[in-house]
Write a protein that binds this DNA or RNA. Sequence first.
DNA 1: TTATTAACTGAACATCTGGTCATTAAAAAC
DNA 2: GTTTTTAATGACCAGATGTTCAGTTAATAA
Lengths: 208, 208
Amino acid sequence: MNAPVRRGRPALVDPAALIRCALDLFVEHGYAATRLEDVAHAAGVSKGTLYLYFDSKQALFAAVVREGLVPALAEGEALVAGWTGSGPDLMRQLLAGWWQLIGETPLGGLPKLMIAEARNFPDIAELYHREVMQRGCALVARAIDYGHARGEFSSPGDARTVDAVMAPLLLYVLMKHSFGPIADACCGASEADDIRFRIEFSIQALLP
Amino acid sequence: MNAPVRRGRPALVDPAALIRCALDLFVEHGYAATRLEDVAHAAGVSKGTLYLYFDSKQALFAAVVREGLVPALAEGEALVAGWTGSGPDLMRQLLAGWWQLIGETPLGGLPKLMIAEARNFPDIAELYHREVMQRGCALVARAIDYGHARGEFSSPGDARTVDAVMAPLLLYVLMKHSFGPIADACCGASEADDIRFRIEFSIQALLP
DNA sequence: TTATTAACTGAACATCTGGTCATTAAAAAC
DNA sequence: GTTTTTAATGACCAGATGTTCAGTTAATAA
């Protein structure tokens, strides 16, 4: 059971740190253009060490996706399950929470990465689709149904409504991680204002 | 002026066809994972022939972006300029036209490609941002302002409103070219219905 | 102290692909 | 028919990078 009785040199490397570095670089440069040597260097280890923790570059990519968003989903599910206020306020909380927990963190780069690479890695795409997208959609659908049942929203939480509700925020985070450096030069409003605006825009579309 | 007086072997290759093949493969596999040999093979020419028409892989990519969407924009601009009906109907025409001319054609893959590669190719991203995104946003902004001036829309056509209005359709086309093959297995409604739904969703958010 | 075990390294290997170029093909000019 | 000019080819080159592995380091056990 216990008494691991460590022998040999103790491990210095934190695998989670390797995954974080890989996420950052994959998001910034894309999968193919990210060299494992850069990931290793960013994490302060050698290229060979990566192979002690991941079988291949693709396995590292899979780990980035697997360890990324699933934990954050649980938090949102708890929020919706325990809600007792109004439907629009639930949506505000849910979408603002998504932004805080995912959108504005490094995890916000995952949607861009997955959209770019889904067709090259069907297995990983299927994992993301099942464990992240479908669970996330079910979560938002429950929130919309909550408001619909109270007569505050005109549509029930079907798949297309969920998709359209999330679209403004999702597109924002995609743009932030792709054209962000370019667009920053021109448009000037603050990020927080942009997010609030898009949340209210989506809620407006749900009202009767 | 005229009398080109052709000498030597006449050209058999249509550069536009090379660009079309490159677009298809870039969209399917991404920039880095697309081999020039595959592009050449798809177009029925040899790899060396590509270099008679494009200096480098990046130049081919730039051509794909440059020749892609700019022509379609002119059509939309003419529609808005000559419109005399209601604001919501103008938006319906504009968004449905975008779908017919871009979304459901191979050109619909360009947004995914640009989001994936913008940070790797700042020059091309800047070109796309200036010639496609900004012109496209100005076009939609004009349509929203048209309805706003008639009291049919609550918001004027500012940048954030335009972005939120286009988001459902844009995200749909991104998904179609990334998770499309995977998601097809589960959700079943027709594409045309999906598009109509998203157009009406965006218009609903604009109403007072 | 010595032996043993596990973590870690980085040089070397194998492959893949963007890019080049000597060669061949096909047309017009003479 | 011969020469000239342009189009097209595909074998080849060079650089980059995912992957491996013999060797090194640092801890415990004897």
